[in-house]
């Protein structure tokens, strides 16, 4: 009997121990160690660490590229999150209608989301390339453009191009989640609103939007976090260039750490990013709580 009780009390801990170890060593430790690295200076890997208090942060203020990355990150995150939400909602509303082939469309729109980032990025880079890109060919033929545009090489349009393509990647996720929320709204509510003489705009504003509000908050929180932290997509698209036109906090952090080998400075940049994101998350959460 005693052995059985012992097994019963020890078993849960045995079950979760390996998972706990992974999480502690590769999520908690790096987070604490990463944030604290921002307050130190180290000349070479494994050398003496010197506590420099806020020096790295003071340097950030006079770093023009950091200021640009800060600004770009805000523009990028807001634009991508809004585009994804608007187009995701439009798709979800269409797919919520009853029509033939709905299941097929619902599967097809998921394609951008499942195509690996590297494949999506390379396809876009080919489509957007200045010389042989199909986008320029089509726009020139249609007479929209008089000369081809270097979509990813021109500092004036590069950020715009990256925003559109990044929104393309995750719109399906938003669409599918919002569709599930739309299907949770009771049909009866629409029917009784129709009897009461509510128009389609009123039905959308008073039934649809409130019906998906809770899910929308979660979707906006998730997409904000993901977009804000997104590194691989922008890095593969432009490496933050041309002339830092698409430089963002995650890309600038990475370049500092692994190209310029300034680990402590990189840690400080990422910590500022973490704080910015926390503020954004609290803001979205609060707004939607009301």
């Amino acid at each position: 009997m005693k052995a059985a009780t012992l097994r019963k009390t020890v078993l849960p801990y045995l079950l979760i121990a390996p998972g706990l170890l992974f999480v502690a060593f590769l999520l908690i430790y790096p987070l604490i160690s990463g944030v604290s690295a921002g307050f130190f200076l180290q000349n070479r890997l494994g050398g003496e660490r010197e506590f420099v208090w806020l020096n790295n942060y003071r340097q950030l203020l006079s770093d023009d590229i950091f200021v640009l990355a800060f600004k770009n990150t805000i523009i990028y995150t807001v634009a991508v999150v809004v585009l994804q939400y608007v187009f995701g909602l439009i798709l979800a509303l269409f797919l919520n209608e009853e029509f033939r082939g709905r299941g097929l469309f619902r599967s097809l729109i998921l394609v951008p989301w499942i195509v690996p980032t590297i494949a999506g990025v390379l396809s876009w880079r080919f489509i957007l390339s200045e010389q042989f890109g199909i986008l320029n060919v089509m726009l020139l033929e249609a007479g929209v453009l008089s000369q081809s545009i270097d979509w990813l090489g021109d500092p004036d349009v590069a950020l715009f191009s990256v925003i559109i393509t990044a929104a393309w990647k995750n719109t399906p996720f938003v669409a599918v989640v919002l569709l599930a929320a739309l299907q949770g709204i009771e049909r009866q509510m629409y029917e009784s609103a129709l009897i009461d003489g509510a128009g389609s705009v009123q039905r959308f504003a008073y039934i649809t939007l409130p019906g998906i509000k809770a899910v929308s908050t979660v979707v906006l929180l998730l997409t904000t976090i993901w977009t804000f932290n997104q590194f691989d997509f922008i890095y593969l698209m432009t490496k933050g260039g041309p002339a830092n036109a698409t430089q963002t906090i995650p890309v600038y952090t990475y370049l500092n750490a692994f190209s310029f080998l300034r680990f402590n400075y990189a840690a400080a940049i990422a910590t500022v990013g973490l704080l910015m994101m926390l503020i954004a998350v609290v803001f979205i959460y609060r707004r939607n709580e009301e």
Partner: peptide, 15 residues
């Protein structure tokens, strides 16, 4: 943990 920025975590992990 889904919220932690990867580029921050990866520095200590690399070390």
């Amino acid at each position: 943990s889904q919220m932690f920025p990867l580029v921050l975590l990866i520095i200590p992990i690399y070390l």
